[in-house]
């Protein structure tokens, strides 16, 4: 099984799509963030509101990398035409699928850590430069060290759920349309988290991972706290993720390949 997981990781490592997602997540978005900061410094007229949004805007698309990892893990064998050959080895299909799960976990955690380090470093650096607080609102999208640490488990949780949910959904689709799987994975991966917030976010924040951003933006009126006890929230999200994986496994076990 360890060899099969390593093989899955190699497949992810060699995927152009995964690298594209990783580069966008870890390099392009933080650079865009910096560019936005520069713009804010130039055009700010509202006491920092736009600067606040920069953090959310940065964290939201950060999901892209995790989603693409799930898409590639769930579809590469099929689109590459390799799945029939692997099935023809006689290895149980369930084990072929099972090897993908830890591979996605490892890849998503690695990507999330890289993303967090870059965002955390940027935020921390900006914090040192941040002007004084005006009317209870930060004047720059900065992070304190404590905030950065608090951010990590949220980024990990959101990305892991997304990566695994997308894996299940894309495997269930058997790669008929990986792009559709990606969109579904992204949308359905976020759904349980959106459902767990007290207030319905507006359409932009609806695309954001509330668990990761609700605390970060502090006094924001757009995102409220989790409406159920944390244990129930975790259980709900875990069940949803396992369900998505179960659908993918079930489909792979039964489908013609």
């Amino acid at each position: 099984m360890v060899r099969m997981v390593r093989a899955e990781l190699l497949r992810l490592h060699r995927s152009r799509t995964v690298w594209l997602g990783a580069v966008v997540t870890v390099v392009v978005l933080p650079l865009a963030f910096l560019a936005l900061i520069a713009m804010v410094e130039t055009i700010r007229t509202d006491g920092g509101w736009f600067a606040e949004k920069c953090v959310e805007i940065l964290l939201g698309p950060g999901l892209l990398g995790a989603t693409l990892i799930g898409v590639v893990a769930g579809t590469a064998d099929r689109t590459g035409g390799v799945l029939p050959v692997l099935v023809a080895t006689g290895r149980p299909r369930g084990r072929l699928f099972a090897a993908r799960v830890p591979a996605v976990l490892i890849a998503v955690v690695a990507l999330s850590l890289a993303f967090w380090l870059v965002v955390g470093a940027l935020g921390f650096a900006l914090h040192a430069e941040a002007p004084t607080v005006v009317d209870g609102v930060r004047d720059a999208p900065a992070l304190t060290g404590a905030e950065a640490l608090e951010l990590l488990p949220r980024i990990l949780a959101v990305n892991v759920v997304l990566g695994l949910a997308t894996l299940g959904i894309c495997t269930a689709g058997l790669a008929a349309a990986p792009a559709v799987g990606a969109v579904l994975g992204l949308a359905l991966g976020i759904m349980p988290m959106v459902a767990l917030v007290e207030k319905t976010p507006d359409w932009i924040l609806g695309l954001m991972p509330p668990l990761a951003t609700s605390e970060l933006v502090g006094g924001s009126t757009f995102v409220g706290p989790v409406a159920v006890p944390v244990g129930w929230a975790v259980l709900g999200i875990a069940l949803w993720t396992v369900g998505a994986l179960g659908v993918g496994r079930w489909r792979l076990l039964r489908a013609d390949v």
């Binding site: 060899r3 099969m4 190699l10 060699r14 152009r16 590459g80 050959v85 290895r91």
Partner: peptide
């Protein structure tokens, strides 16, 4: 059919990982 971006050896290695 193979993973085009991987080398011949890597493709065989992936298959071997499933076989043992």
């Amino acid at each position: 059919r193979f993973h085009g971006r991987m080398t011949g050896r890597e493709n065989l290695w992936i298959h071997a990982a499933v076989l043992g």
